[in-house]
Design a protein around this nucleic acid. Structure first.
Ligand SMILES: [Mn+2]
Ligand SMILES: [Mn+2]
Ligand SMILES: [Zn+2]
Ligand SMILES: [Zn+2]
Lengths: 137, 137
DNA sequence: GCATTTGTTTGTATTCATTACAACTTTGCT
DNA sequence: AGCAAAGTTGTAATGAATACAAACAAATGC
């Protein structure tokens, strides 16, 4: 996705496509490893020497509000962020610390887990354990 | 579960059944609302006037290590704790802040969501939205 | 163009959950 | 009892997230 496409995506979602928001969103799109706010900050401050930590939080908040980004409660100590907003699962490897995405064979099945009468806005399936790569040794 | 039963449960799991650990575990067993460390602290310090916050964290750590308690990453700002360690789902209501437990019609189905080759130790299904009680008005 | 307003960014100060630490106490064992 | 290991306590430190106000930028109206 090039810059003009990003601009129109943000505009369509009703938020002003500022340079900072685009940079944060682009970082998330190109780094699907669920980075933390601090990871994003340290990466972007290299590229744009003047970039505030607060702006990272503000931009993430705006992007979340707009439905382009979601937060993932995978680690207890810090919040992680994800530009993939369609329902998908996460596997956290205790060994290497990586967070893997995985899809569902039948997404409807996951929605069916939600109890009757409860209005689901977001769903998350989260597994913890040992990943494929760390297990084979 | 009475105190002598609790003592034997903790002993069987290899941790010393101290008065504090028993109090924390009993609180979690009798308060299935997924309390935070601070909530547990404020409740127990009433009963046992000398009770340190650190001890809450230490006890929770020991109980988690022993597999009797697990942490639930449902709120971004604080950790919640749960004495129900069998696989079950959580629904967080954005309106009232309550966390509801729910079971799975077929638990095997949830395990089947885990991608091939990944060794699952713990599974969580989280939904966020509006609960049954907050929706009807 | 210029003034006004509204929204955004920035840096700093603050909050607050969690962790680190060291002194003290309790428990288990001989 | 005497000793060592484990557990508890209070305080200090850490660090992610938020609050805030000043500076800045973009939009709007004239
Ligand atoms: Mn993801
Ligand atoms: Mn639960
Ligand atoms: Zn791994
Ligand atoms: Zn509710």
């Amino acid at each position: 996705m090039n810059d003009s496409e990003l601009i129109s995506v943000l505009s369509r979602r009703g938020i002003r496509p500022t340079q900072q928001r685009i940079a944060v969103y682009k970082y998330l799109l190109t780094h699907p490893e669920h980075p933390s706010a601090d990871t994003i900050y340290r990466a972007l401050v290299e590229e744009y020497p003047v970039f505030s930590r607060t702006t990272i939080y503000n931009s993430l908040g705006a992007l979340i509000e707009a439905g382009l980004v979601r937060q993932v409660n995978i680690c207890a100590d810090e919040q992680r962020f994800d530009a993939t907003v369609t329902d998908h699962g996460h596997f956290f490897c205790k060994e290497c610390g990586k967070v893997y995405d995985f899809g569902f064979d039948s997404p409807a099945m996951v929605s069916r887990l939600c109890p009757r009468g409860f209005i689901k806005e977001q769903g998350d399936v989260f597994f913890t354990g040992i990943c494929k790569h760390c297990y084979s040794f």
